[in-house]
């Protein structure tokens, strides 16, 4: 246990610990919407736009968080606007807009020569350099995001499933989409110094994608994903300390390991653990456990789980169709 306690004597590590718990939970929460709405690329893009904004902000003597936030929100709105035109898909809009912002940042760094501020932190992450002010910002954003999701949970759930139907049922889809974009931009900005702009997409997507492997319930997903996010951040933090490696890299590698384990578990579940499909026998719907062997050949287990079963007390077996999907 000493290896867990030893680093806690340092204030910078305690700050990093608090930050990683909050950022992990925050990325886990926001990642659910990113994964379910199929917009994984936006996390990557907005972090790059925020980086460009941060560089411009530095030159104009504007606070890092404010400049990055303005750039990320502006880029997000521009992407949404381009996407509304339906001429190009969102991935093309994200690629064009956010890379342009990033390029502005890179061009300014090159043209200005030496910078007093080290932008490597924003690019690759340094969770061990978290200040009390950073903690205040991260804590505030985490609270805001959790409260906003809680207050709009039903609408966000429906919108993620079927945007058009949601709007017919009175969900203010445009407003909620703007809210999600805004929260996502805030999440990316506060996570940037810890995970780094280059790897934040993984920090956002991996907890939710791993949790998705384990559950088919949205309600459980939105609880498990932040827990995974916290776990991944904490393990990544300790690895970063002991390996003396960039925190972004260790967090993302921990996430990749968690995802791999979740994926293997899912494969094992699908292949070897029995589960039930709904069947129809003479119009009577029921289910009994069985396992899949191969693509969709069914291997009914022996014993009381066999297709031999009873109707009205008479034990018998008959061939039947499965009313399900492969």
């Amino acid at each position: 246990m000493d290896f867990l306690i030893e680093p806690l004597q340092f204030e910078f590590f305690r700050n990093a610990l608090y930050a990683s718990i909050m950022v992990g939970a925050l990325c886990g929460l926001m990642g659910v919407f990113i994964v379910l709405q199929g917009m994984s690329y936006i996390g990557h893009g907005l972090s790059h736009a925020a980086f460009g904004g941060a560089v411009v902000g530095y030159l104009l003597n504007i606070n890092f968080y404010a400049a990055a936030a303005i750039a990320a929100v502006f880029a997000a709105l521009l992407i949404q606007r381009i996407n509304d035109g339906k001429r190009v898909r969102s991935d093309a809009a994200i690629g064009t807009v956010t890379t342009a912002f990033f390029a502005i940042g890179v061009a300014l760094i090159n043209s200005q020569g030496k910078f007093e501020r080290n932008f490597e932190t924003a690019l690759f992450g340094n969770i061990l350099g978290i200040t009390d002010f950073d903690l205040l910002i991260v804590g505030s954003v985490t609270l805001i995001c959790f409260f906003a999701v809680f207050a709009n949970y039903r609408g966000l759930f429906f919108m993620s499933f079927d945007r058009e139907a949601a709007s017919v049922f009175g969900v203010r889809v445009s407003r909620l989409q703007f809210l999600i974009t805004l929260l996502l931009a805030l999440c990316i900005i506060v996570s940037m110094n810890m995970v780094g702009a280059t790897m934040i997409a993984a920090a956002l997507v991996v907890p939710a994608a791993s949790a998705r492997m384990l559950t088919n319930s949205y309600n459980r997903l939105i609880v498990i994903s932040p827990i995974f996010g916290m776990f991944i951040s904490l393990v990544g933090l300790f690895l970063s300390y002991y390996l003396d490696a960039a925190s972004g890299a260790t967090i993302v590698l921990t996430g990749a390991t968690v995802f791999s384990l979740a994926w293997l578990y899912r494969l094992y579940q699908d292949r070897f653990i029995s589960h039930a499909h709904i069947h129809l026998h003479d119009g009577v719907e029921h289910a009994h456990p069985h396992s899949h062997d191969g693509d969709h050949a069914h291997d009914h287990k022996a014993g009381n789980q066999a297709p031999v079963h009873s109707h009205d007390g008479i034990v018998h077996a008959h061939s039947h169709d499965h009313d399900d999907k492969p």
Binding site: G155, F157, F161, F169, S217, Y218
Partner: peptide, 13 residues
């Protein structure tokens, strides 16, 4: 990731 019951309740969103 949604069940039939959750789909029905979406109508009250």
């Amino acid at each position: 990731p949604t069940t039939v019951k959750q789909i029905i309740l979406m109508g009250l969103a």
